[in-house]
Lab assay of single mutants.
Amino acid sequence: DHWHVHIDGERIRLDGASEEFIRTLEELIRRGTDARELKEIIKEYLR
């Protein structure tokens, strides 16, 4: 599956992301997590 998110107007691909990770991201977004912080979390995950 190819997922991607838009954060700060930037399109970030989440290739190979699990549904669990996507749900976690959605939860963080709902909580109002800062965009820079979200991008860091995604970069760490994709390593």
Rank of each mutant, 00 (worst) to 15 (best):
R23G: 04
R11C: 09
S18I: 05
E26F: 14
E27V: 09
L25H: 00
E26Q: 14
E37L: 14
G9P: 02
L46H: 06
E40C: 06
K43D: 11
R23Q: 09
E10M: 06
R36Q: 14
D34Q: 09
E26W: 15
R31W: 07
R11M: 15
E19T: 14
E27F: 11
E20G: 09
G16C: 06
A17T: 05
L25Q: 00
L14Q: 00
D34L: 12
E20H: 11
D1P: 13
H2I: 11
I29D: 00
R13F: 14
E20T: 13
E44C: 14
R11F: 15
E27N: 10
E44V: 06
G16A: 03
H4V: 14
G9V: 03
I41L: 13
R30A: 12
Y45P: 00
L28V: 04
E37G: 05
H2F: 08
T24P: 00
A35R: 05
I42G: 00
T33L: 10
A35V: 11
K39E: 06
G9W: 04
D15F: 15
I22M: 10
K39H: 11
R47F: 11
I7N: 01
H2A: 12
G32Q: 05
G32R: 03
G32M: 06
D8V: 03
T33W: 04
I41G: 00
D15S: 12
D1A: 11
E26N: 10
G9L: 03
E37N: 07
E37K: 13
G16Q: 07
R47I: 12
F21E: 01
D1K: 12
D8S: 05
I29H: 02
G16L: 06
I29K: 03
T33R: 05
H4K: 02
D1E: 12
F21R: 00
E26M: 15
I7K: 01
Y45A: 04
E44S: 08
I29P: 00
L38H: 00
L28G: 01
R36Y: 13
V5C: 04
T24W: 09
R36S: 12
D1C: 09
H2Y: 11
I41W: 09
D15Q: 10
W3D: 06
T33K: 04
Y45D: 00
D15Y: 15
W3Y: 13
T24H: 15
I12C: 02
T33Y: 06
R11P: 12
L46P: 02
L28C: 04
I22H: 04
Y45N: 03
L25V: 10
T24G: 08
E44Q: 12
E26A: 11
R23F: 07
G32C: 04
L25G: 00
T33A: 10
I42R: 00
A17E: 03
R13D: 15
L46I: 11
D1H: 13
D34F: 06
L38K: 00
L14P: 01
G9K: 04
T33F: 08
I12F: 14
E37I: 15
E19F: 14
H4N: 05
L25M: 06
T24E: 10
E19H: 12
R13N: 15
G9C: 04
R47D: 02
E27P: 01
E19Q: 14
T33V: 13
T33Q: 04
V5M: 07
E19M: 15
R11L: 15
T24L: 11
E27H: 10
K39S: 05
D8I: 02
I29Q: 04
H2W: 08
D15R: 13
R30G: 07
I22K: 14
A17L: 05
A17P: 05
W3P: 12
E10V: 06
A35C: 06
I22R: 14
R11Y: 15
S18D: 10
I12Y: 14
E40Y: 10
R47C: 06
E20W: 15
Y45W: 11
E44D: 08
G9I: 04
L28Y: 12
L46R: 04
A35T: 10
R23T: 06
D15C: 02
R23P: 00
